[in-house]
Design a protein around this nucleic acid. Structure first.
Length: 491
RNA sequence: GCCCUCAUCGUCUAGUGGACCAGUACCUCAGCCUUUCAAGCUGAGGACAGGGAUUCGACUUCCCUUGAGGGCACCA
């Protein structure tokens, strides 16, 4: 079996085949990514195919959501997307061919009967499968049912015995006893094909060379293999990717917080970080490389290094990685990326548009401290607000008495009022000297000033912060702090 | 219930019979740096699910048990 690139005997053609039921989740996208990487690695094609054969579950706008997600991550597809709903005739023809060649039959069983049968089987602790009632109908019975005008479905005539074996590029040889399979539906009564039929037909017609899909499809692969065999078609190579599990080790779903990929964009994750992180869920380059660019990924991706074990999604690591990518950005790029988040999340009282020069200075202090873009407004808020919200007691958290604290603010306030230069260096000179003068440790003194200036005890470096904030605002905030302390002392 | 798959630190993983008393990253903790935070640096903690078999030698091969995940629709 060809597993590695250069000596592949057929051109690589892979596809991402989502069904339009909403935004793709992390697992879908990981599948898309691996397909994309594989195609790009071997100079093949990456086809996008929308599997919209379930009319009932179809979600309005979902196709656009899928395209939106792929575009965000720059997983570009080749050609225009296919829509299975536009190819109904093709599937019908194939179903008819199978019917004619006795690989399939018409089934008139009602959904109610099937459901009742299933319940009964489950109750009797038997595996639920179609009992094959319509498989051996006499011509007379067929005619009669036909006369009743019931629209039948087309079922595949699964061999009663023997086994179906296929080779999986990741798992190796996988085998199923045919007796554990049932006569599954190929064509539904609404004329739409089921996944099994449409998938096989399209993979064949589109000359898909490798099917890279999630592990949850492994058990439907024997059905697909059987269809290929019945049609006398060469099946593509299969590679079933390990699942991505939620922290509770179950299949990823809405329950696990953000599952829609686009929510990650809204939470301020960078596409390159997502790509890097997702690539490492089930694949690795070696025993130590964590950070890889898209290009490095393309250059090194291979099926051999895909693991067999399901991976638990680890948000902490994603955050860490996003922080790394955020810090790698040039300041201008960081500002460009962060601005929409500031616009979105800064309090409405903050005047828009933001001053770009000021924002840039602020961002230079924030960039290193943000793990996601969405937390930038929270980290930088005090730079933009007119009035700080904080508990006055926070000023005393360093252990100073209110009297001492008042003194420790009044003195620098006076000293700073006459300051002519207002940059980090001069501020540091002045304030350090003052700490000595007041015989306060720098920790206590600067800590107090930090709260007065920023309203919080953890913030970017004090002098730089003050320099960016500007003299007017700093003096104003020191004055406010003084007032608060005085009020507290009197109370 | 039946079928399939998987099984290394809490998590992502490296490891394809000896170079592994098991390496990396996230996480946690400690220290350094330091005006706080962050970043950075140093260090620590922490795993081969269990039992058989094969072998001079098993994380690595085979079997069983256990555990986990997935599937068993006129959904994909």
């Amino acid at each position: 079996m060809p597993q590695s690139g250069s000596e592949l005997e057929t051109p690589v053609v892979v596809r991402f085949a989502p069904s339009p039921t909403g935004y793709p989740h992390l697992g879908n996208i990981r599948t898309a990514l691996f397909n994309w990487l594989f195609a790009r690695r071997y100079g093949g094609k990456f086809i996008l195919r929308i599997e919209d054969t379930d009319v009932a579950r179809k979600v309005e706008g979902a196709v656009e959501m899928i395209l939106d997600s792929l575009r965000w991550l720059e997983l570009d597809w080749d050609g225009s997307p296919y829509f299975q709903s536009e190819r109904l005739d093709i599937y019908r023809d194939v179903a008819n061919k199978l019917l004619t060649e006795d690989h399939a039959y018409l089934c008139y069983c009602s959904p109610e009967r099937l459901e009742a049968m299933r319940q009964e089987q489950i109750k009797r602790k038997q595996p639920p499968k179609y009992d094959g009632r319509c498989r051996n109908l006499t011509q007379q019975q067929k005619d009669q049912l036909k006369a009743e005008a019931i629209t039948p479905v087309v079922r595949f005539k699964t061999p009663l015995d023997g086994e179906t074996t296929f080779h999986d590029l990741i798992r190796g040889r996988v085998s199923f006893k045919n007796s554990t399979l049932d006569d599954f539906v190929l064509l539904k009564s609404d004329g739409y094909p089921t996944y099994h039929l449409a998938n096989v037909v399209d993979d064949h017609l589109m000359a898909i060379s490798h099917v890279l899909r999630a592990d949850e499809w492994l058990s439907s692969t024997p059905r697909h293999t059987l269809i290929y065999q019945a049609l006398n078609w060469q099946a593509p190579h299969f590679a079933h990717l390990p699942m991505i599990l939620g922290p509770d080790r179950s299949k990823l779903s809405k329950r696990h917080g953000a599952s829609n990929i686009i929510e990650y964009r809204e939470q301020g994750y960078l596409p390159e970080a997502m790509i890097n992180f997702l690539a490492l869920l089930g694949w690795s380059l070696d025993d130590r490389t964590e950070l890889l660019t898209r290009e490095e990924l393309v250059k090194n991706f291979s099926l051999e290094r895909i693991s067999k074990t399901a991976a638990v999604f680890n948000r902490d690591k994603l955050e860490w990685m996003n922080g790394v990518y955020l810090r790698q950005l040039s300041l201008d790029e960081f500002v460009r990326q962060a601005t929409p988040f500031l616009d979105r999340d800064l309090p409405v009282s903050v005047r828009r548009p933001l001053d770009s020069d000021y924002t840039r200075q602020v961002m230079s202090l924030i960039q290193e401290r943000a793990k996601t873009l969405a937390e930038v407004p929270r980290l930088a808020g005090f730079f933009f607000l007119d009035e700080l919200q904080y508990e006055t007691s926070l000023l005393l958290s360093g252990g100073l008495s209110s009297k001492a604290a008042i003194e420790a603010i009044r003195t620098p306030l006076k000293r700073l009022e006459s300051a002519e230069v207002w940059d980090a260096k001069s501020l540091e000179d002045v304030l350090r000297a003052l700490a000595t003068e007041l015989s306060l440790t720098t920790g206590k003194f600067f800590g107090l000033l930090r709260v007065a200036i920023t309203g919080r005890s953890a913030a970017p470096p004090l002098f730089q912060t003050m320099a960016v904030l500007g003299k007017g605002k700093c003096l104003e905030r020191l004055t406010t702090a003084l007032d608060r302390l005085s009020a507290l002392a009197q109370a």
